[in-house]
Design a protein around this nucleic acid. Structure first.
Lengths: 357, 357
DNA sequence: TTGTATGCGTTATCAC
DNA sequence: GTGATAACGCATACAA
C-alpha cells in the first residue's frame, strides 16, 4: 500500500518520506494558481463554479488538506482553546471538561488540556500553552495570580473558573457560601447540633466558601462553630474513609458530618458501616456536587448539586465571547440542595434552591 | 493596565493591537542576527555564553516567546498529541485521560482531546485534528476502521486503545475475557447458578469480551448461559438502577448479576435496596473497573480491577515510541479480581490474578 | 562563533 | 474571475 514501505532498505536508512501535498501540487493539477486554490476552499470567495469543482477534485485526488501550521501563521487564529485544571481524575473535573469540550467542539474549535497537579513547572507550561491557542480557561488553584495577569495582559483571552476574579478578568463559578449555609441549617432543622466539616479549605476557593457558609450558619443559629475543619488531605473516598475512622474513634463523635464532596462522603459511609454508626440515625452525612452515584448510595446522599457540565460549557462560551471581543460579565451558577436520606429526611423531598444566586 | 483599553475609542474602532514581538526585534535589541537568536534558544547550539546572555536578556525584556505556528511550519513537529475517546464523563475515561496526560506532559508535549459522542461528524473532526498533532491515540468505538487506516497511511502515528488491532497497527488494551470468566466462575463457587449479565456488548469491544468470558465460564462449568445479556442503554448508575428494577420484578430473579461496570453495579445496589433484595444474601452483584468508590460501597463491591491510568499512560508511551520510529508491539494489561463482599465473600480476600495476560 | 539567505505552506493584496 | 507576489515568524544549510 505505502510505496515508502517497499523501498525501505533498513532501519538506519533515511526513509523516503512522502511529503504532504501542498497548494502548489493541487494548483498544478487543477491548472490554476495557488491563490485560486485557497479561494476555492472558502465559500464566500469569488470563484467560478467550474474552477472550484476542478480544484476540489484535485484536492481530493491528492488527499490534500491545508497545513494547519501554515494557516495559523498566515492568519491569526489557532482555532483551539485550552483548559487548565488541577487534576483530571474525579467526577467533578471530568464533568467540567466534558461540558467544556462539548461547547468548544460545537463552536468548531479544538481542545487542549493541561493538568497542573500542583507542580511548580506548571507556570512555564501554561505560558507555553498560551502560544498555541486563542484562549484559556484557568481553573481553581492551578497557577499564580501574577502569571494569570501577565498572560491576560499579553493578549490571550482568559476566563477564570471556580476561582476568584482578579485584575478585571471574567470569572465563572458556582454559588457556594449560601448553599453551604442552607445545607448546614437544614441539619440543624433535623436537630443536629454537633457538626463537623470534613475537608481542607486551603485546597481550593470552593471548599473555603463551603467552610465559610458552614460557619455562618452556626452564627446565624447562635451556635458555636467548630474552630477548625477536620482537614483531610484529598478529595477521594479513601481520604474521607481514613478521616472518618478517626472521627468515629472519639467518645462523643459529631452527629453530623458535612463533607467537602460526595466522594469523601462515601468514604465516611464506609467508615460508619465498619464502626457501627448508622446513617442517618447516629450521624447525618452530606456531600457536595451530586455526582451520578450520590443518589444511588444507601442511604441516598443528601448533597448540593453543582452544575458541573454547565460550569465547563459556560466557561467555553464566555471564552469565545471574549475572543470575539463581545461584552461579557462574570457569572455565578445556581446550586441546589438535594435533600435525600443521609441527612435524616425520610424520603426524597422536592429540591429547594440552595444558592443566593 | 493595558494601554489598548485607554485608547479604545469605541467598539467599532480597530483596536491598536500591539503585535507580538518577533525574532527580528529580539535580534536587533541584542545586536545579533536572527539566526543567533534562534540558536541561543537551543542548549546544544554553539553560541558564545556572553552572546546567549544578551539574547536571553533581550528576549525577556521584550517578553518574547517564539511563535509556535512558525516553529511548527519551519520544523516538522507539532509537539502535541491527541486522544480520541467516546466520552469524557465517567471515572473510566477520566482515569485514562489522566494517565495519558501525565505521560504526555512528562515527555514535554501537549495534549489535545476529542470526544466523539457517537456523532457522525467525528470522522471529519479527527481528520482535522490529525493536522495539528504528531500522533493520535484512538480509543474504543469512536471512528470507523477505514478512517483509522487512512489516517495511519497518511503518516500520523496512531495507537489503538481498548480497540481491536487492525491494519497492522499497535494496540493497547486490558485483558477481559479471562477476567470475566474468572469472575463468573467465582460466583459459581459461591453456589450461584442463575446469573445474568447486565450491559450491552454492542456498545464497546471491552463489554463484548466480558460477555464472552461470562458465557465461556458457563460452558466450562457445564451450565447453560443466558442466551442474551440484559442490555442497558448506558454505563451510568441510573441505567443500572432502571434495568435492575425490571430484573427484580421477575418472580424468580437471578441470584447473581454481573454488571458491565461499577457504576451500573451501584445502580443495582439501589434497586436491590428499594425492592428488598439483600446483597449478597439474595443476590450477588459484581462490577468492573474497581473505581475509587467501589471499595467504599456497602457491601464493598467485588469487581475486576483495570489499570485505567496505565492504559492511558502506556498508550502515550507507545505513541511516542511510534513517533520516534522505535520498535513497538501491542500490549495487554493485566486485570485483577477484587473479591470483596458483594459476591458473598465474607471479608476482603487477598486478590488473585484474574487475567490470562 | 556568527551572519546570510532560503524554505516551510498558507492567506491576502494587489493588479489584470 | 484569476494570477503574481508579498507577508507570516522561525529554523537551518551554507558561508564567512
Amino acid at each position: 500500500m505505502t510505496e515508502a514501505e517497499t523501498s525501505d532498505t533498513g532501519p538506519r536508512t533515511a526513509e523516503p518520506v512522502r511529503r504532504r501535498p501542498t497548494v502548489y501540487q493541487v494548483a498544478e493539477r487543477a491548472g490554476v494558481s495557488i491563490a485560486t486554490v485557497s479561494r476555492a476552499l472558502r465559500q464566500d470567495s469569488p470563484v467560478a463554479p467550474e474552477t472550484r469543482r476542478r480544484v476540489m477534485a484535485a484536492a481530493r485526488e491528492l488527499n490534500w488538506r491545508p497545513s494547519r501550521a501554515a494557516q495559523i501563521l498566515a492568519g491569526d487564529t489557532h482555532d483551539a482553546v485550552a483548559i487548565v485544571l488541577p487534576d483530571l481524575a474525579g467526577p467533578y473535573y471530568a464533568q467540567v471538561i466534558a461540558g467544556f469540550e462539548s461547547e468548544v467542539v460545537r463552536q468548531g474549535s479544538s481542545v487542549m488540556v493541561l493538568a497542573t497537579h500542583g507542580r511548580a513547572a506548571a507556570d512555564q507550561m501554561v505560558r507555553d500553552l498560551a502560544g498555541r491557542i486563542d484562549g484559556l480557561v484557568i481553573m481553581d488553584q492551578t497557577i499564580p495570580d501574577r502569571t494569570v495577569e501577565e498572560l491576560a495582559a499579553s493578549g490571550v483571552a482568559v476566563i477564570l473558573l471556580a476561582r476568584p476574579a482578579i485584575g478585571g478578568l471574567i470569572a465563572i463559578r458556582s454559588e457556594s457560601v449560601g448553599a453551604a449555609a442552607s445545607l448546614t441549617s437544614h441539619l440543624f432543622s433535623h436537630g443536629r447540633r454537633r457538626l463537623c466539616f470534613l475537608g481542607d479549605p486551603d485546597r481550593s476557593p470552593d471548599i473555603a466558601e463551603r467552610w465559610s457558609g458552614f460557619v455562618q450558619a452556626h452564627i446565624a443559629e447562635g451556635l458555636p462553630a467548630p474552630a477548625e475543619p477536620v482537614r483531610c488531605p484529598g478529595f477521594e473516598a479513601e481520604h474521607g474513609y481514613r478521616a472518618a475512622l478517626e472521627i468515629f474513634r472519639d467518645e462523643s463523635p459529631p452527629d453530623g458530618i458535612v463533607c467537602a464532596n460526595d466522594e469523601v462522603a462515601s468514604g465516611v459511609y464506609r467508615a460508619a458501616a465498619e464502626t457501627g454508626h448508622r446513617i442517618p440515625d447516629d450521624v447525618a452525612v452530606t456531600g457536595w456536587d451530586d455526582v451520578n452515584l450520590a443518589a444511588h448510595l444507601s442511604p441516598p446522599l443528601t448533597t448540593v448539586r453543582q452544575q458541573m457540565r454547565q460550569l465547563g460549557a459556560t466557561a467555553a462560551r464566555l471564552l469565545f465571547d471574549r475572543i470575539a471581543r463581545r461584552h461579557i460579565a462574570s457569572q455565578v451558577l445556581d446550586t441546589e440542595l438535594m435533600r435525600r436520606e443521609s441527612c435524616g429526611c425520610r424520603q426524597d423531598a422536592p429540591p429547594e434552591p440552595a444558592g443566593t444566586g
